[in-house]
Design a protein around this nucleic acid. Structure first.
Lengths: 363, 363
DNA sequence: GACAAGTTTGGGAACGTGCCCAAAGAAGAG
DNA sequence: CTCTTCTTTGGGCACGTTCCCAAACTTGTC
C-alpha cells in the first residue's frame, strides 16, 4: 500500500526534475564518450580499469570524466553485472535491545572496517519479529544484496537454510551448533568460560555457580560446557556448582541469582555468561547483603563497558567482537567472489580480564 | 584495484551460474506474462497495484506469480524509476567510538523503526576520516541512495552543503547552528542543560562548574548556554561558575575536572555535557578524595547506560534519541516523496532524571 | 610490399523493469 | 445496426551500463 504511494510519488518527482528545472541531467557514459570523441565501450573500459585502451584514449576519457564530473550509475551497472555490491547485516533487534547491545555495535564496526577498501556497501537490517524475518527473505530474493551476514543465530533458526537454498552467500557470527555447515566465525566460548571457571577455582572459591544464556544458543551451551570442564578438572563436587538458566538480560540475571542463592546459600562465586546478567546478579547479591568480592566473586563474559563501569569493576572474558565482524565480512566477500570455495569455520581466542569483582578470598 | 577484481570475478560467476548448472533462472516479468497469458505491462500493473486491470487478468497474473515464485527485480525497477528505495545513515566513527556510542545505537533503532513499514532499506555508512568523507560523496553521487541522514554535524562541516547542491534530500540529527537551513531534529539541549543547572541550584549547591563539549558543535554551545542561563537566573556570581571545554571523552572529562579543581578548589557541583565526560569527572573527583555527592554533585547528559551503571548512579538529562532517529527518518521520507516541501526544524523535549550523584547538600 | 599477428576500437544486444500510446474490445446511445 | 465513449490491453521504447564480436588500425616478418 505504502509502497505504491511511494512509487507513484517518485515518478512524479523525476517528471518535475526533467521538465520544470533546467534539467542539469547527470552525465551518462554516452555523454562522456561524445565529449572524449570515443565510443561508449572505451569509456567503460577506462572506468573499469581495463588495459585494452591506448594511452591517448585513456587520457581523453579521463579528462572528459573530470570535466563532466561523471560518476557511473551503479544501478545500471548492477542490472547487467547482476551484482549490487552491497551486503546485508541482519541483527535481531529483540536481543540487541536487551543489553548485548555493545556487542552489536562492535560487530558493526568490524564489518564496516572490513568493507572499507571495497566498493561494497552495508545494508543494516534490524529484525524485530518473525514477520519481519519473512519480509527479509523477500527482500533478499529481490537480489538487493550479494550476500548476508547473520548475527546471533538460534539453534533451530530456519533463516540460514533458507538463504542457503536461495543460493545466497551467507556467513554467521556465531553458529547454530558445533556442526554448523555454513561459514562462520565465533569466539572461543568454551575456552573462555573454562578460563573464567579456573580463575575462580584458583582464587580459592569452593562453591561456584553459573548463570547461562538460553540453551537453544550455541554460545550458551559452549560457555556452560567450558565452566563445567573447569569444575570437573578442579574436582569440584557437582552439588557445589549449581546452574541457573537465564536469558542474557539484567532482570534474568537477577532472577537467576535469586534462585541460585535460594538453592545454595553458601555459594561464594558465580560465573555469568554475559556482563549484563552479571550486572543483574550483582544487584541481587547486594540486595541480599552479600559483599562483592569478599563474600561472592563475580565473573562476566563480553568485557563490555558494563564490566568497566560496574562497581566493583567486573572481571570478564574478553571476546574479539570487532574482529569477528571483520572476519565474517572477509569470508563473505570471498564467498561472493568465489561461490565454490570451501566453507570456513573460525574460532577466535578469548582473554580473561581480571578486575576487582573476583579478588581472591583472603584479601 | 580491488574493485576491478571483484567485478571480474562477479562476471565469471554469473557465467558459471548460467552454463554449468541447470540454470534455475529467476523468473522475470516476461516469464510471468507468458505463464499468465497476458502482456508484460499487465503484470507490471498488477504488481504495482494499478486498478486498470480486469479481475480475470489480475487473478491469472497473481496465480502465475505465486506459481513461479516471482519477485520483482528491484535493481531493474530502480533503473527506470530512478529510485533506489534506500537511504544512507552516515555516522562519524571517530566520535561513536569515543563513548557517545549508545547514542548512535539508539539513533539506528529509531531510524530502523521508522523504516519498518516502508520498502526503504537502510545503508549504514561509518565514516572514519576526511578521505572517507570524500568517498562518501562519490558514492552518494552514484545515486545509490534516495536521501541521506547525517548525525553529529560540526559547525563548518561541508558535507551538508555538498549534499544539498547535489539535490539529494538530506536531514540532520542535530544541527550545525541555530540558523541551520536543512531539515533537522535535535533535542532541547538548551532547556535540558538549564534544568540540570537549576536542579543543582535547587539542591543547595553554590559553586557550580560545567564541562562542555567541543565548541564547534551546536550541542556543546547550546548546553553551555542553558547552564549559563540557569546560573544567571539564580544570580550566581560568574566566579563561582567556572567553565572547562573538553571533547566528549572520558579522558577529556578527567582532564577538565582536574583543571576545574585546580582553578576552583571550593566547587561543590559540576554539570558535564555528556555522561561519558561525567564518568571521567567522577573518576578524577574520587582520585582527589572528593566524595560524590556529599562534597561534589555531578550531573551528566544523555541518560545512557553509564548513568545507570555508574557508582553512585548518575543524575542525567534524558534526550529522546530513538525518537530523534525516527523523526529525521520520517522527515527524510517526506522530503524524498515531495522535494519541494518546506524544511522542517524540530526540537524534542528532554527530561532530567535525578539519581544519587546529585543528592542535596545537607543529606 | 604484402601478409600474418597483434592491438585497439565501437556498434549492437542484453539486463528487467515502467511508461507512453495506439489499438482492441465492451458497453451504451440513437 | 452503427457510431461514440469508456475500459482494458500489450508492443515499443527508454533507463545506463557491460559484454560480445567483428572491424579497423599497428606492428613485425619474410
Amino acid at each position: 500500500m505504502i509502497w505504491h504511494n511511494v512509487l507513484a510519488n517518485g515518478v512524479q518527482w523525476t517528471g518535475d526534475e526533467e521538465n520544470d528545472m533546467g534539467a542539469p541531467q547527470r552525465p551518462t557514459i554516452k555523454t562522456v564518450a561524445a565529449r572524449a570523441g570515443v565510443g561508449r565501450t572505451t569509456v567503460s573500459r577506462v572506468v573499469n580499469g581495463s588495459d585494452l585502451v591506448s594511452d591517448a584514449a585513456k587520457a581523453a576519457v579521463l579528462a572528459a570524466i573530470a570535466e563532466l564530473n561523471y560518476v557511473p550509475n551503479s544501478v545500471a551497472r548492477g542490472l547487467v553485472t547482476r551484482r549490487t555490491n552491497s551486503i546485508a547485516l541482519v541483527i535481531p533487534e529483540s536481543e540487541s535491545r536487551l543489553g548485548a547491545e555493545p556487542y552489536f555495535s562492535a560487530v558493526i564496526r568490524g564489518v564496516s572496517a572490513a568493507l572499507r577498501d571495497t566498493r561494497t556497501q552495508l545494508q543494516l537490517v534490524l529484525v524485530r519479529d518473525r514477520e519481519e524475518r519473512d519480509q527479509l527473505t523477500a527482500h533478499v530474493a529481490e537480489r538487493r544484496v550479494d550476500g548476508v551476514l547473520l548475527v546471533s543465530v538460534h539453534q533451530h533458526d530456519p533463516l540460514p537454510d533458507i538463504l542457503e537454498n536461495l543460493g545466497l552467500p551467507t556467513v554467521l557470527a556465531g553458529r547454530r551448533s558445533a556442526e554448523e555447515s555454513l561459514s562462520h566465525a565465533c569466539s572461543d566460548n568454551l575456552g573462555g568460560a573454562k578460563s573464567a571457571g579456573r580463575h575462580l577455582v584458583d582464587s580459592g572459591r569452593t562453591a561456584i555457580a553459573t548463570i547461562t544464556g538460553p540453551l537453544d544458543m550455541d554460545v550458551s551451551r559452549s560457555r556452560l560446557q567450558g565452566w563445567k570442564d573447569a569444575m570437573d578438572e578442579a574436582g569440584m563436587p557437582p552439588e557445589n556448582c549449581p546452574v541457573a538458566t537465564s536469558d542474557f538480560t539484567e532482570e534474568g540475571g537477577m532472577a537467576a541469582m535469586r534462585s541460585l542463592l535460594a538453592r545454595s546459600p553458601k555459594l561464594d562465586a558465580v560465573f555469568a555468561a554475559s556482563d549484563v546478567m552479571a550486572a543483574g546478579a550483582m544487584l541481587e547479591l547486594r540486595r541480599q547483603g552479600r559483599r562483592i568480592p569478599e563474600d561472592v566473586a563475580v565473573v562476566g563474559f563480553d568485557d563490555s563497558y558494563i564490566a568497566r563501569y560496574a562497581h566493583p569493576s567486573l572481571t570478564s572474558v574478553r571476546q574479539p567482537v570487532e574482529e569477528i565482524g571483520s572476519t565474517i565480512t572477509r569470508v563473505l566477500l570471498e564467498e561472493i567472489a568465489d561461490p565454490g570455495s570451501q566453507r570456513q569455520k573460525l574460532v577466535l581466542p578469548t582473554e580473561l580480564i581480571v578486575r576487582d569483582s573476583s579478588s581472591p578470598c583472603g584479601s
